[in-house]
């Protein structure tokens, strides 16, 4: 199996797992689901760290630093605001 096919397999499986789990999220938690998902999509920060850290050219550093900043806003802001929201959900009584 070539690398591309392997990666596509992982992609397909992850989509399936995603569909299976996320259909079970109740509507009452849909907003925290979205903000939490936002935070997770900040995973692109890994690519940004590598791009900025390699210091290949000044251009890649500038692009990398901007990407780190954007992704970190997502990660930090996303997890924080999701936590704030989830902490508000309480049961009766």
């Amino acid at each position: 199996m070539s690398d591309s096919v392997l990666l596509l397999t992982i992609f397909g499986l992850a989509m399936i797992v995603g569909f299976e789990i996320i259909t079970k999220v109740p509507p009452t938690l849909h907003t925290p689901l979205m903000s939490g998902a936002n935070a997770i999509s900040g995973i692109t920060i890994i690519g940004a760290l590598v791009a900025a850290g390699h210091e290949q050219t000044w251009l890649t550093v500038v692009l990398g630093v901007c990407a780190i900043a954007f992704a970190t806003i997502n990660v930090v802001g996303g997890f924080l605001v999701t936590h704030r929201m989830l902490a508000m959900f309480r049961k009766k009584g």
Binding site: T44, G47, L63, C66, I73, N74, G77
Partner: peptide
Amino acid sequence: LVALFNGFGGAASALVGGAVMHE
């Protein structure tokens, strides 16, 4: 806020794509 964060995620990815290409 969620709209803004969506946008930042997209921007970060597009920037990384370009940075990798240049590297």
